[in-house]
Design a protein around this nucleic acid. Structure first.
Lengths: 221, 221
DNA sequence: ACTTATTTTTAGTCTTGTCTAAAAATTTAT
DNA sequence: ATAAATTTTTAGACAAGACTAAAAATAAGT
């Protein structure tokens, strides 16, 4: 069913998936070029190629979106990525800010059974080390209800269940601030003029900027 | 120290390493082409490129051999390959005849620390599932003394410590015949005209062809 | 030694994925 | 509604890694 694709083709599918999830509309050439870090002309070429392979739907000047096959492929690569991240953190003791680049390589391993064995070995984890859901082998993704901390009202208490930014810089900042997945966060105060927040994380109190609160995904208790 | 190479370049280095270990002389273009499964002209191109990168020494019509840097790179890839094989067999429960193709992909993961973590996780194994020694992180390979079963005299007893042929076909044959690493093998009889052998493996007696005895590596007890 | 056979290299072509420069389509602004 | 700005596509080029066909070097056979 799933075709044998180059790493590059797979990366395009992943990028289109992630962008089309954000915007719900067709993905534009420029958007995609920025995400992939390539020139728009290169993107046009590749998108035409993916269209020939029936992995995307594409009409000139109209942007691109995934076909059902394209989506399946993208989700399968994301599944690989997230399972390998769990492996790296749980078994090889890497920290959550160190695993992304390794997983970018490991996700392209052509697998049939390998990834199912890995899944079993890891005890069928449901989320990766950043709190993102791991698609099951049929491509279903658990849609856990979560929202940015910036949406939460003063006085409410919630649990950190994910992050919107998996960059090493952001994750290291969270480590330093003793904010981790599962932490209980209470909103003590919101500053009107800059939307910064004063919060209590487990036992500690601290202030964080709007930039930060937008990227912390929580679930109200 | 080690350059950033393409999978293809790495595969050439691995192939040159393995061929030059067999013959102890420079590796010829044709030999290499057969091993890599490519045309000799393609090999010439690649070998010239590797020579520019100082990974091989090459003089026209004279064959090729690895420089110290080339050898280091090759050994490091072999280390990766063998460690991943141990992982696949020990942790993911693959059989010894199933792991080669996966390891061919995994060996190219660019690693710095990853492979050292994997090594520790696996408890610093010394041999892969086929009995081949795993180079240490400095590139030293334990040269265990072993010889083909075909060399062993009638009446001698030995232990199976490796195989010369890691193809799935050969390994499945061994499974079927209940011959495995660590098995005790006693040579009961040698047939003059075809060099086949009658042997006792642990509790079972059986006859095996010269083709087989050449590919079983043993250590005399 | 000299002709034949084999091995190896060169020259030119192809595909993949990228680029730049320029043309075409679309969107925005007046 | 037409000009200006932006986005997207086309055209042509390049590097990597492979190929075929043909030339050059080496090895073998008489």
């Amino acid at each position: 069913m799933l075709k044998n694709l180059s790493h590059t083709e797979e990366n395009y599918l992943k990028a289109i998936f992630s962008l089309s999830n954000k915007s719900e509309t067709a993905v534009s050439t420029n958007e995609l070029a920025e995400k992939i870090v390539a020139k728009p002309s290169s993107v046009t070429d590749m998108v035409q190629k993916l269209a020939e392979k029936k992995l995307v739907d594409y009409k000139k000047y109209q942007g691109v979106y995934l076909t059902s096959n394209g989506r399946k492929t993208a989700v399968s690569i994301i599944r690989n990525h997230r399972l390998w991240e769990v492996f790296l953190v749980e078994k090889l003791d890497f920290k959550w800010d160190e695993v992304h680049d390794f997983a970018e390589q490991l996700e392209h391993i052509k697998s049939d059974t390998l990834i199912e064995r890995l899944d079993a070995f890891l005890n069928f984890p449901t989320h990766d080390p950043h709190g993102d859901p791991i698609p099951d082998k049929n491509g279903n993704i658990a849609q856990n209800l979560r929202e940015p901390l910036s949406n939460i009202n003063i006085g409410s208490t919630c649990t950190l269940v994910g992050v919107n930014d998996s960059s090493s810089k952001f994750l290291k900042f969270l480590d330093k601030s003793k904010i981790k997945l599962g932490s209980t966060i209470k909103v003590l105060h919101k500053e009107e003029f800059d939307n910064s927040m004063h919060i209590q994380v487990d036992k500690n109190k601290l202030s964080i900027s709007h930039q930060i609160t937008k990227n912390l995904l929580v679930k109200i208790i």
